[in-house]
Amino acid sequence: MKTIVLVRHGKSSWKYDVSDAERPLKSRGVNDAKLVANQYLGSNDVPEKIFTSPANRALSTCRIFMDVFGLSENSFTINKDLYDFSGEGVINFIKKLPNTIDSVMIFGHNHAFTSIANIFGDRFIDNLPTSGLVKLNFDIDNWQDFKQGTTELVIIPKELKK
Rank of each mutant, 00 (worst) to 15 (best):
L6S: 10
K11Q: 10
K11D: 09
S13D: 12
W14H: 02
K15W: 11
Y16C: 02
S19F: 05
D20V: 15
D20F: 10
R23N: 10
R23F: 10
R23V: 13
P24L: 04
K26V: 11
S27C: 07
S27E: 11
D32M: 13
K34W: 11
L35P: 04
V36P: 03
A37E: 03
A37C: 09
Q39P: 00
L41S: 08
S43H: 09
P47W: 05
E48K: 05
I50R: 00
A55K: 10
N56S: 15
S60A: 12
R63W: 13
I64T: 14
I64M: 15
G70V: 11
L71I: 09
L71T: 11
E73Q: 15
N74A: 07
F76E: 03
I78Q: 11
I78W: 02
N79L: 00
D84Q: 08
G89Q: 11
F93H: 10
L97M: 05
L97T: 05
T100W: 14
S103A: 04
S103L: 04
I106S: 03
I106H: 03
F107T: 13
F107Y: 06
G108L: 08
H109T: 01
A117Y: 13
G121K: 01
G121H: 03
D122W: 02
R123N: 12
P129D: 03
G132A: 09
L133G: 01
V134D: 03
K135T: 02
K135E: 06
L136W: 12
F138K: 00
D139N: 11
I140A: 03
D141A: 11
D141F: 12
N142H: 13
Q144I: 15
G149H: 11
T150R: 11
T150V: 09
L153I: 09
L153T: 10
V154A: 04
I156A: 08
L160D: 10
L160K: 08
K161R: 08
K162Y: 14
